[in-house]
Nucleic acid binder design. Structure first.
Length: 288
DNA sequence: CCGTTAACCTGAGAGC
DNA sequence: TGCTCTCAGGTTAACG
């Protein structure tokens, strides 16, 4: 489901809700996630206190006060629900896939804090996963191969131009490659290329420096706009606190096949093309 | 090393 | 209704 903006929204609300809270109990109903949940998972979390909740790329990182960590990936369909037993019907805006009614069937992990506050990890497809990381060095090691996030100043024209070099892979796949750039997924890759006026099928080695610059600017714009709008909710998601993702209303190309191009003075029509088994949307007229 | 493919899963929606 | 097929916001092991 979630790309950088959606994960950031989840991080923000989690950070508000569980900072300084101590884990009282962990219940695992299904260990068979994308990677099998380690056997020591429950005991590792128990009695640890949350210092803060951070994020790298599409990963949520629970930072414990003793400098250890729990890394969470939501996969395609994972959601985190916040529940305060003292205030019934209190959900955070951490769901982008499911409706308010959580199908209990897919509640795989519950982390219960003091004062009857808990978070529930729900994931129908089970592509999501948890990892425990014992110290700062190991956390650094976990992400050392990852490319910079678009907001990082290392993600600049020169970096992109030299990384693409003579490589023949198409630019759409580069944007999805987390070792090149971290946090972009299938929706935002299409949106970023539209804003950059670059056709998703263009081979990496054909991009000019000026186009690399455009990718820097547009990826920052698309992702930060999406965060401002609370992320994208493709399914008809609503939650009780009333917050929901709204960026889907701003999509210029994603899921707009056969509709008119939104760029001023462009009379093009949005096309859909399967690139490496994943759908890409683009304007055949203004994306060269 | 590079680029592509299959595999991991469930559920919704389309078409018959 | 019910069956089959396709598709979905991601990652990674394996292959040529």
């Amino acid at each position: 489901m979630p790309e950088l903006p959606e994960v950031e929204i989840v991080r923000q609300s989690l950070n508000k809700k569980i900072t300084q809270k101590k884990v009282k109990k962990v219940i695992v109903r299904n260990r068979n996630l994308r990677f099998k949940l380690p056997l020591e998972f429950e005991s590792f979390l128990k009695d640890k206190k949350i210092e803060k909740v951070t994020r790298f790329s599409k990963y949520i990182i629970l930072n414990f006060t003793n400098q250890s960590y729990c890394v969470i990936h939501l996969g395609m369909s994972g959601t985190i629900h916040f529940i305060n037993e003292n205030k019934k019907n209190c959900f955070t805006n951490t769901s982008f896939y499911s409706s308010v009614q959580m199908p209990k069937k897919h509640n795989h992990v519950e982390i219960i804090f003091v004062k009857d506050i808990k978070i529930i990890f729900n994931d129908p497809r089970r592509f999501g996963f948890f990892e425990i990381i014992k110290n700062k060095q190991l956390l650094k090691k976990r992400f050392y191969r990852f490319g910079p996030e678009p907001f990082d100043k290392k993600f600049n024209k020169k970096y992109i131009y030299s990384y693409l070099g003579c490589k023949k892979k198409n630019i759409k796949n580069f944007l999805l490659d987390q070792f090149f750039v971290s946090g972009i997924g299938n929706i935002y890759a299409s949106e970023i290329l539209f804003l950059s006026k670059i056709n998703p099928s263009r081979k990496g080695n054909t991009l000019k420096e000026k186009e690399c610059k455009k990718i820097v600017i547009s990826s920052r714009k698309v992702l930060s706009d999406a965060i401002k709008k609370g992320g994208s909710s493709i399914r008809d998601f609503k939650n009780i606190s009333g917050n929901r993702g709204n960026f889907q209303k701003n999509f210029k190309v994603y899921q707009r096949e056969n509709l008119n191009c939104k760029r001023t003075n462009c009379r093009g029509v949005i096309k859909k093309k399967i690139i490496s088994k994943r759908s890409s949307f683009f304007c055949n007229t203004c994306q060269k």
